[in-house]
């Protein structure tokens, strides 16, 4: 017993060291989203093309909601993945053009291709706040009931798609057949 008490500080030290060591590898940039398992916030905005959109216009199946902007370089990096997903019809992608200018957004889509069903125009960033967005790019996975199920912060490339989104979608589809 006294032996144990004698070594207690050493044991506590190592336990703390292991804990703090693991802390070094935490991704502190990716904040947990408050909207997981909550419905998409209500919106009544226009698309980048000037058409009115509300929640009713969202796909009634599982879809991706991608936050993008013409100023955003990482968005250009993840763009080919969204183009492929759209071309192969794997999953519908809805865009949110976040803190951008309409003209710039239209040009960007013209230059790089448009993988989105439509892009919600959020020039003021107000809709982004309701989503808990803190910077483009971010991608949300929304289920067929319009409930947000997953969020990925920063670039969604093919490996993120494979390792994070495919399992998450499979889990969602596990219960209900689409």
């Amino acid at each position: 017993m006294t032996r144990f008490v004698f070594f207690l500080p050493v044991i506590v030290f190592f336990a703390l060291a292991v804990l703090l060591w693991q802390g070094l590898f935490l991704d502190t940039k990716a904040l947990p989203s408050m909207l997981i398992d909550k419905p998409m916030p209500e919106f009544a905005l226009t698309t980048v093309d000037g058409e009115e959109v509300t929640n009713v216009d969202l796909p009634d199946q599982i879809f991706l909601l991608n936050i993008w902007g013409s100023y955003c370089l990482p968005c250009l990096i993840e763009h080919p993945t969204f183009m492929r997903l759209a071309e192969e019809g794997e999953i519908p992608v809805v865009g949110v053009n976040y803190r951008d200018r309409q003209g710039l957004a239209v040009n960007w889509l013209g230059e790089n291709g448009n993988p989105f069903e439509f892009s919600i125009l959020d020039e003021s960033g107000r809709f982004g706040i309701d989503l808990g967005v803190y910077g483009a790019p971010e991608t949300y996975l929304v289920d067929s009931d319009g409930v947000i199920r997953y969020r990925h912060v920063s670039v969604l490339d093919e490996s993120v798609w494979r390792e994070e989104f495919i399992p998450a979608i499979a889990e969602l589809r596990g219960g209900v057949s689409l």
Binding site: T28, L31, R99, S124, G125, R126, G128, I129, Y134, G135
Partner: peptide, 20 residues
Amino acid sequence: CPMCQNTNLSGSTGGVAQDL
């Protein structure tokens, strides 16, 4: 500020801080 972590909203130039 959720974007430029470790600054407060009043000290941040980040877009989201401006919006908030």
